[in-house]
Amino acid sequence: MHPPDLLAALHARRVLAIVRGSDPDAALATVLALVSSGIDLVEVSLSGADALRVIERARAALGPTARLGAGTVLTADDARRAAEAGAAFTVTPGVTDAVAVSRALGLPVLAGVLTPTEVVAAVAEGATALKLFPAGPGGLELLRALRAPFPDVPFVPVGGVDAAAARRYLAAGAVAVGVGGPLVGRAADGDPCGLDERIAAFRSLSKETP
């Protein structure tokens, strides 16, 4: 995946699903369920159990064109291992060496930022889009404040974003939202109860169908 492809996917899909779980088999099943249901821009967090293997298995199941990335990429080594596992993009919680290494490996990056200084640094490192993290209770006001000096920067708020908050963020100019628990629930831990309903709630945010 090239940087313009990730940016186009964020614009079109509007939802980046974040899968993080304690059960690798359940995490894989969750990734496949999300993609088959139309939420096909997915990040597998490296903080989950055996996450690199989950990415490898998902890549094998979904094929080379799947929009599958690695999240919680903290270090240069994390970036290298994510690329080897088949990640098409990386997501970092901050502006670290992982951003530059990901770009050197040809992977687009969604880099985590919270301040104007971090925005400038992430853009300078070549980040494709910026993960506004942790968005938290004041995330909407923060997004509006940052978009004033950076109107052309694509922001993706992450952190406690439910379907109602997602609509508010998108209306305020976010290119997409990153969603973990409010979408995935405990499915990646082996309890898929309610997953189909939550997928339906977020699926309606997409600008296009698969």
Rank of each mutant, 00 (worst) to 15 (best):
A165W: 12
A165K: 14
V54P: 13
A51M: 08
A163V: 15
V91F: 13
G48W: 13
V161N: 10
T115V: 10
L146V: 04
R144A: 12
A176I: 02
V184L: 08
E208P: 02
G71T: 12
V179Y: 08
G112I: 04
G69D: 02
L34E: 04
R81P: 02
G86Q: 04
L195C: 07
L10I: 08
V175C: 00
L16K: 11
A85F: 10
F133G: 01
L34N: 05
A51L: 06
P137C: 01
G178N: 03
P192L: 03
V123N: 00
L110N: 08
P108W: 00
L46A: 14
C193S: 14
R147E: 03
V153K: 02
P116Q: 05
P157M: 12
D25P: 03
A87M: 07
T65C: 01
G138V: 09
E43H: 04
L41S: 00
T90W: 01
A12E: 15
G136K: 07
A12P: 00
A82V: 05
G38L: 10
F150R: 00
T96Q: 06
V179T: 09
H11F: 03
T117D: 06
L74Q: 07
V101M: 01
D191Q: 12
A76N: 03
C193P: 00
G194M: 11
A187Y: 12
A201F: 09
L114K: 01
G21N: 11
R14Y: 05
S22L: 10
L62D: 01
T75I: 10
T30H: 12
T92W: 08
S36G: 05
L10W: 00
A165Y: 05
R144E: 05
G139S: 11
S45R: 11
K131N: 06
P64I: 02
V179Q: 10
P108S: 07
A9G: 00
D78H: 15
R20M: 13
P24E: 14
A174H: 01
R168D: 14
R168H: 07
V158P: 04
S206V: 11
S45M: 12
S204H: 13
P210L: 04
A60D: 14
A111N: 08
S37L: 09
I199P: 05
L74C: 11
V91C: 07
R203W: 09
A176N: 00
L62H: 02
L107K: 07
A61D: 04
A70F: 06
A172W: 02
P134C: 13
G178I: 05
V44W: 03
